[in-house]
Design a protein around this nucleic acid. Structure first.
Length: 222
DNA sequence: CACCAGGCAAGTA
DNA sequence: TACTTGCATGGT
């Protein structure tokens, strides 16, 4: 079975089993970007509390509201999302990027993908996964997002060595799937869902929701 | 109690 | 390039 066929089949099974995930959770592109920073190494449920705090304080949007907020106050509001001092600085840097673009998302995204990616990576607190998440989920660019779940799952399926780098894993998907933002969106969300809800619990076989042709015959591992 | 969650930057070798 | 460490809350 070719890599193309395997990736297509896994996607089909995940979609059939779990259904569309409707990512990214959030009301706007800017809110998505804030969430992308807040969720770094932290559960989404924690992020939701932080976002609720920002909203009820009226500082989530537009970006100028967040820029005006004193760093200590911002840190206090996002406390449930963990690493609150570091993340406050990160959000400030992100809001600064918005300011440089006239607080106009469309204007910020008015750039070719490679240039935009470099620009995002230049922001404090924005690494490859966060940059690609913004490109895919906020700017609708066909860029495949790699995260810890994806890496683990690909390793278990034998499609990539456990030591594969971010760019290697990303190429594996993007070299074998059509450049379709909607497909990448759903695929990554489904992999995260699988990783969160199934992979690290009971052995995937025979209880694996993917059933008879489970792509993890050796079990979840660690 | 230990361990982990949709990373990242900075420092070291 | 390829490690290591600090950052911190909340759930299991």
């Amino acid at each position: 079975m070719s890599v193309v066929d395997t990736l297509q089949e896994v996607y089909g099974r995940l979609l059939a089993r779990f259904g569309p995930q409707h990512w990214w959770p959030g009301d706007s592109g800017w809110e998505m970007m804030v969430g992308a920073v807040l969720t770094q190494a932290v559960r989404w449920s924690n992020v939701e509390r932080a976002i609720a705090n920002l909203k009820s304080s009226g500082v989530l949007s537009p970006p100028p509201a967040l820029r005006r907020l004193p760093p200590e106050e911002l840190a206090r509001l996002i406390r449930p999302a963990g690493y609150y001092n570091v993340k406050a600085r990160k959000l400030k840097a992100l809001a600064q990027l918005m300011g440089d673009a006239g607080d106009d998302l469309a204007r910020l995204f008015n750039e070719y993908t490679d240039g935009l990616r470099r620009r995002l990576l230049g922001v404090y607190g924005v690494g490859e996964e966060t940059a690609d998440s913004i490109l895919l989920y906020a700017a609708s660019r066909p860029v495949f997002v790699i995260d810890a779940y994806t890496s683990r799952i690909m390793g278990r399926m034998g499609l990539a060595p456990p030591t594969a780098s971010y760019s290697e894993l990303q190429r594996l998907f993007m070299d074998h799937l059509p450049p379709d933002a909607a497909l990448y969106n759903e695929y990554h969300a489904l992999l995260v869902h699988l990783g969160k809800n199934t992979c690290r619990k009971t052995p995937l076989c025979p209880t694996c929701p993917l059933n008879t042709t489970c792509p993890f015959p050796e079990g979840p591992g660690r």
